[in-house]
Design a binder for these strands. Structure first.
Lengths: 264, 264
DNA sequence: CTTATTTTGATCGTTTTTGATCGTAATTCG
DNA sequence: CGAATTACGATCAAAAACGATCAAAATAAG
């Protein structure tokens, strides 16, 4: 029957539909809808509940991606920065990843590559825990609730016996004096990270510039490389030019692959 | 139901949500929220606390535990054991949780309680990472890919400076000589756990008995308490009676009433 | 063209869900 | 430690949704 087919299309597309919605959409009475759903449920293609219907066929995956993260404006910048930062990593490198949304984006881009990853971030660790191409080392310590990263003396102590080739750190603010984060213990841990690394690379989007925060983490001369999106003002570009720090500008509208959020 | 699904999305994304937040977000009364949460808790996808909800469902990376048949008898056993084991934990205790599916179930039951948790298990850490009633400490070290737990010298070293009141360890096998697990490094780490704990509690379902594995972890006299489901044979019950080890039998058909209408 | 059968839409009593209220329990604050 | 505040669960009435029933409309058969 044609009506049943259209009904299934609607259900499949929306995942869940209420009976009034179906009535309006198909222009038949609710009684008819109910009868149709009854047989649709018998054939296993939909599952009724109080208030509507669920689709229970295959291919529900599309909908899950749609409901993922709302796309922020700042998020594009972070992705662009992560894209450039990932180019700095060579296969079989030993890489330290700090917590933070930008480093998390970087981590997503590194999944699947043969690397040794050291991190204090729980979300980052989760990304790699399923992968068998990476050797994953977690820095122990107390979890900072809001951010899901370990920090504190345990973490610092563990960092003392670790050496990595490249450390990617995130920041809450940058000003002419240096780089800032909001938590004192975390900042101390990040200093230890810097000491454990041959190269320290800061990833920061342009909105962070000119803003400071509670605790200064590093000074300019301690940073090897800085990756920022291209919205960085010329004022800051000029300032950085005069320093030893290497500046990498990430182009914003590069043809990023569309399926950015693979939940796997 | 559509509302339940949206609710779970919010909970999953934020880790912890208060009831007023959910009311504003979903635009229904708090009574409805409470009722929904009740059923959500019955189906094990969330854990209620005073003031809100924690997400305890699969965090997309817990696949190793989801593998088993959901109606597997072994799963009920693990849940029953976890239920009894949770009774051994007092508020404000310092508790060490090993990796493993049974300890993971235990962890789910402990979410929201005021505790200090130390763990080497990534899935367990994820459960608590959003909680602010818990002080969470992660044992650093290399991740054992298949199981998502840290182990090795880093972990052992960190354990040396830690003391907990109760350690809950899981095992792969139990025979008359002692307790076994399958990985040598992991077993060494678990020995360190035992040394760090005032009380060592083993959680093991009855199917583990009579089976050994590669590496012996502990001997009988090192274990204070053993929690097993009631399917344990009388042979083993008698044996344990003659030892110093405290045996707790978990009843299988306890209050877990069938939540028939949970549509995912 | 008439009759039988099926499908549809409306009505109605019943069940389920919802939102508000209130007494109790837990948590916070002084 | 006690008071105030907040959160919780139980209860109940209103609202929504459901299934059953029946008559009208559409379709098929004779």
């Amino acid at each position: 029957m044609a009506r049943r087919a259209r009904m299934l299309d609607v259900i499949r597309q929306q995942g869940f539909v209420s009976i009034p919605e179906l009535r309006d959409s198909l222009e038949v009475s609710e009684s008819t809808i109910r009868r149709d759903l009854e047989s649709l449920e018998d054939s296993g293609e939909a599952r009724r509940t109080h208030g509507g219907v669920f689709y229970t066929g295959s291919v529900t995956t599309v909908r899950q991606f749609q409901r993922g993260n709302p796309n922020d404006g700042a998020w594009d910048k972070k992705r662009a920065i992560a894209f450039e930062a990932a180019k700095l990593v060579s296969d079989h490198d030993t890489v330290l990843l700090d917590g933070g949304s930008t480093t998390y984006e970087l981590a997503k881009q590194l999944v699947g590559r043969p690397l040794q990853i050291v991190t204090n971030s729980l979300p980052v660790a989760n990304l790699f825990s399923a992968s068998d191409s990476v050797d994953l080392v977690i820095l122990g310590g107390a979890i900072h609730n809001r951010t899901g990263v370990t920090h504190g003396p345990f973490t610092d102590q563990m960092l003392e016996t670790i050496n990595v080739q490249k450390a990617f750190l995130s920041v809450a603010g940058v000003n002419e004096k240096g780089f800032y984060n909001s938590n004192l213990l975390l900042v101390e841990t990040e200093r230890c990270m810097m000491r454990s690394a041959d190269r320290t690379i800061i990833v920061a989007d342009s909105t962070k510039f000119g803003r400071s925060s509670l605790a200064r983490m590093l000074e300019w001369n301690q940073v090897d490389t800085l990756v920022v999106d291209e919205d960085l003002s010329t004022l800051w570009r000029d300032r950085i030019d005069e320093l030893d720090t290497n500046l990498i500008l990430a182009p914003l509208n590069n043809s990023q692959d569309t399926h950015s959020n693979s939940i796997s």
